[in-house]
Simulated assay, not measured.
Amino acid sequence: MKRQRSPKRQPKPVKEKKPRKLKQPRVGIRRKTTWLCWLILLASVSFGVYKNFTAINKHTVHEREIVKVKLTDTNAIEAFVTDFAKVYYTWEPNQEKLETRQKDLGKFMLNGLVTLNADALRSDIPTTSTVSDIRIWKVEAKKNQVNKVLFTVNQQIKNSQKEDIPKPIESTYSLNVMKNKDGDMVIFTNPTIAAAPTKAKIAEKQLQTDSTINAETTGSITKFLTTFFTLYPSGTANELKYYVAGGTKPLNKDYRFAELVNPTFHRQGDNIQVDATVKFLDSETDMIQYSQYTLVLEKSGSNWTIKSGL
């Protein structure tokens, strides 16, 4: 018998490999990178909002420096120095009165200064002095509550050995006064000779009428101003409003207009500026008053009006 061969084994079926799924990147707030991005975004937005509220716009914001002027009341110092000067510059050759003067100086000066001035006047002095006027020119604040005072004293000096008529003497001095926070004062420097203020020197301008203004215009304005200043001293508010823009307060004075003295005319845009001296006669005192005005006139139609200057 032939041996029967066993059938060949059937090959195992090959399993098909499933394709690997590619992992999709997960995007979400749980990722560290995403957290970092969100934090950066939030920080940027917050910083932008902060800068928007706090940044200075250099084009629209302008700083202003406000300077406050501090006014110092010098009335008390002026009164103190005036009372002192009346005592200091008044004397007569009488021992009792000189002693009283010396005692009164102690109300104003340091004791050392009172002692310094003890021998300034003797009982045999031939002169008598009275104070006729005291003028305070300047009170200048210094350091440590000190004020420097400049003043002038007018004295009437009578010398018994030379003449009977008092001689006027004018002298200017400076001294230092300390005023504490309670308002108490003391003089701690002796009156020292000083220079009084004098007349200031300035260059006077000679005004001339603009060559562009013709004689017809100057004549018209002169006629208008003559009419106005004739009415002005005694005119009512209702009458003056026809000559002055917005009206003006009445003077209620008994002045008589005499003339315009050397008026000059200058063009100021569409208006005319007039510099004029007006001569009035004061009927109450019989004195001639020279009043000076710089007026700006405007013309409406054929009529002139004073725009400003009164």
Rank of each mutant, 00 (worst) to 15 (best):
Q292W: 00
K51M: 14
E92Q: 15
L113N: 10
I187F: 02
E63W: 14
I29H: 06
T115N: 11
W91P: 01
I213R: 06
L231R: 06
S302F: 08
L36D: 04
N154R: 10
N238D: 13
G48H: 08
Y88M: 08
T33Q: 12
Q145H: 14
A196H: 05
D210S: 06
G309T: 00
V67L: 08
P25Q: 07
L105Q: 09
E99T: 15
T127M: 02
M185Y: 04
Q208T: 15
P13D: 01
D119S: 14
Q156Y: 03
W137R: 04
L41R: 02
T217N: 06
A215D: 15
K158E: 08
E63M: 13
L113F: 09
R64F: 15
K8A: 10
P126F: 07
S234E: 07
A276S: 14
Q95N: 12
A215F: 10
N94M: 06
A258L: 11
N176Y: 07
F188W: 05
K32C: 05
R122P: 00
I272N: 00
M287H: 11
Q268P: 00
R122I: 09
T128G: 01
P25F: 04
K97G: 03
K241Q: 09
Q292S: 10
K249D: 13
A195C: 00
K70W: 02
T189M: 09
N180G: 08
A76E: 09
V49Q: 12
S302M: 08
G247W: 04
Q24W: 03
P168Q: 12
W38Y: 12
S211D: 11
M178L: 10
K51A: 11
P166N: 00
N262G: 04
S123P: 03
T152V: 07
F265Q: 04
K97E: 11
L295P: 01
D119P: 00
V27G: 02
N303T: 14
K107W: 09
S308L: 06
G247L: 04
K205N: 11
K15A: 15
V61D: 13
V45H: 06
S44Y: 08
N159L: 05
V27F: 13
V45A: 14
G28P: 02
E259C: 05
T218H: 02
K17C: 08
F188D: 01
K223A: 12
D119R: 14
L251W: 06
D104Y: 10
T227Y: 08
K23H: 12
S6K: 15
D182S: 15
V61P: 01
T127G: 01
V177I: 07
D182K: 15
S300W: 11
G112V: 05
P13W: 03
P19M: 10
K167P: 00
S44E: 04
F228K: 00
Q273T: 11
W91M: 04
I29D: 06
K107D: 15
K142M: 12
Q24M: 07
T74F: 03
V67C: 03
P93K: 09
A55Y: 10
D275T: 12
R9S: 11
I56C: 08
W38P: 00
V244N: 02
K18Y: 06
Y242C: 01
V261D: 14
T264Q: 10
R20H: 08
T217P: 01
L42C: 14
N159M: 06
L71Y: 02
E16N: 07
T227Q: 13
N111P: 07
I272K: 00
Y290L: 14
F228G: 01
T34P: 02
D254W: 02
E216I: 13
